[in-house]
């Protein structure tokens, strides 16, 4: 679905496309899941909520690209985008080497480089998008988990 000429031209870009509405809907379900899991103490619901959050993030960025009529591609085309992939891979390897703090740092750097490449350098790679959102959601999952399920 393209941009409707009668929709709010000066309003937010996201809800102008069907994908944007889906992103918002899935995001609301994710937020509701976190609230329900906090109220009931159900860890499965909490995990599921973050899977929904990941999907919502991907849909949201795709909606943003679509609202600007920008084409997406799979592999990164900017240096910052390529570094995002490298940092994610490094974080993944470090996690398996049981160097969790360094892995978290690499994941955070991947999120920062990914966001920068998307917002400032016109990167439209699906790989970068997913590899940026995965650690972002993962870090948020652990951080919020400390509050939702206190030790």
């Amino acid at each position: 679905m393209g941009i409707s000429p009668t929709s709010h031209p000066s309003g937010p870009r996201l809800p102008r496309t069907a994908l944007g509405w889906w992103a918002a809907a899935v995001g609301i379900v994710a937020a509701a899941g976190v609230v329900v899991s906090a109220a009931t103490g159900n860890a499965a619901v909490y995990t599921l909520a973050f899977l929904f959050a990941l999907v919502s993030g991907v849909l949201g960025f795709l909606a943003m690209f679509r609202s600007r009529s920008e084409a997406t591609y799979f592999l990164p085309r900017t240096p910052v985008g390529r570094w995002t992939v490298g940092l994610f891979a490094a974080g993944f390897v470090l996690l398996f080497l049981r160097l969790a703090p360094t892995a978290f740092a690499a994941a955070f750097a991947a999120v920062a480089t990914g966001l920068l490449s998307m917002l400032r350098y016109g990167e439209r790679s699906l790989l970068v998008l997913v590899l940026m959102l995965l650690p972002a959601v993962f870090l948020l999952y652990f951080f919020l988990g400390e509050f939702v399920f206190p030790h």
Binding site: V80, A106, A112, T113
Partner: peptide, 20 residues
Amino acid sequence: VIEMMPAAAAFFLGLIGILH
């Protein structure tokens, strides 16, 4: 760990900026 995160972001973003 919290200090390592902005450190990693500053280091790698700076490195990319300087190199590329």
